[in-house]
């Protein structure tokens, strides 16, 4: 049971930006190991390089050095369709305005598998319907995407990623802009999906308290350290104490959350 297959691994990965004259390294020697059926959260302060890391892990940005392996293959060597069949994403950006219905939006997730004009086969329809079922959004499927709430839209976008049927789903801050109740519901949905579909799900978030409670593993980025472990181990190692270096806030390991100093 513990012998989980690795979906995404990195070896001595350095991330950052290359300009003409210099390399701006954001983090180096990263060794990440994401395996199937796990819900993994990525936390860190603003500007620490979470987005750069996600961009590198999704193959959009080239690493400065080291390699990202997706299913044991260098991610930079995938062609675009093969990559789309192995990795799906949920982004923070707003959708451009259109008349897309929820069903059509989710069906677009099947594009890497459909023919030249995008005709949906029975297999495609099956995948779409099971994604709708898993995320419990059947009642929305005929609505236009601008008619639903932010929380519902987030579930729809997750369903779209599910329909893409990839072993790895990466979400960039899926709970921003949501109230506590909807944050929890999105988190629990992700948790459920990782267990029921055995997919590996990686997401970045600022809701550290919730992430501690629900993630199987966490990746914590600070200026000096980079740790991937189970939340309880991270707490006992005292990693969260170093997350924000500020006198206004401290981490209470007993409660497992951040407390504002009075």
């Amino acid at each position: 049971m513990e012998d989980k297959k690795n979906i995404l691994t990195t070896s001595n990965l350095s991330i950052g930006y290359k300009t003409k004259n210099a390399e701006n390294t954001i983090a180096k020697n990263l060794n990440i190991n994401l395996s199937e059926g796990k819900l993994i959260s990525l936390v860190g302060a603003n500007g620490i390089g979470k987005s750069t890391l996600l961009r590198t892990l999704t193959g959009i940005q080239k690493p400065l050095s080291g390699t990202v392996f997706l299913n044991n293959k260098d991610i930079q060597t995938f062609d675009s369709v093969a990559l789309a069949q192995n990795l799906s994403v949920v982004l923070t950006e707003r959708l451009p305005s259109s008349n897309l219905t929820i069903f059509e939006l989710i069906a677009l997730g099947r594009q890497p598998y459909t023919n030249w004009i995008g005709k949906l086969s029975n297999d495609d329809l099956e995948k779409i319907n099971s994604a709708i079922e898993l995320t419990q959004i059947d009642h929305l499927s005929d609505k236009k995407h601008y008619e639903i709430s932010d929380g519902q839209l987030q579930k729809v976008l997750i369903a779209r990623a599910l329909a893409q049927d990839t072993p790895l789903i990466i979400l960039d801050e899926p709970t921003t802009h949501l109230d506590l109740l909807h944050k929890v519901s999105v988190f629990k949905l992700l948790k459920k999906l990782s267990k029921e579909t055995n997919k590996c799900i990686l997401f970045s978030t600022h809701d550290i308290d919730l992430a501690i409670q629900l993630s199987d593993e966490m990746i914590v980025m600070t200026e000096t350290t980079f740790e991937q472990d189970e939340p309880c181990n991270l707490i006992s190692k005292g990693v969260f104490d170093t997350l924000f270096k500020n006198e206004n806030i401290y981490f209470d390991p007993e409660k497992g959350k951040f407390i504002v100093t009075n």
Partner: peptide, 24 residues
């Protein structure tokens, strides 16, 4: 344009999503 229909549909989600769907 007939051959672009599929890419146009993908572009409805924005360029980044379209790229993640395997669109060049």
């Amino acid at each position: 344009s007939l051959f672009s229909i599929k890419s146009l549909d993908a572009l409805l989600l924005g360029e980044n999503y379209a790229r993640s769907l395997g669109l060049n």
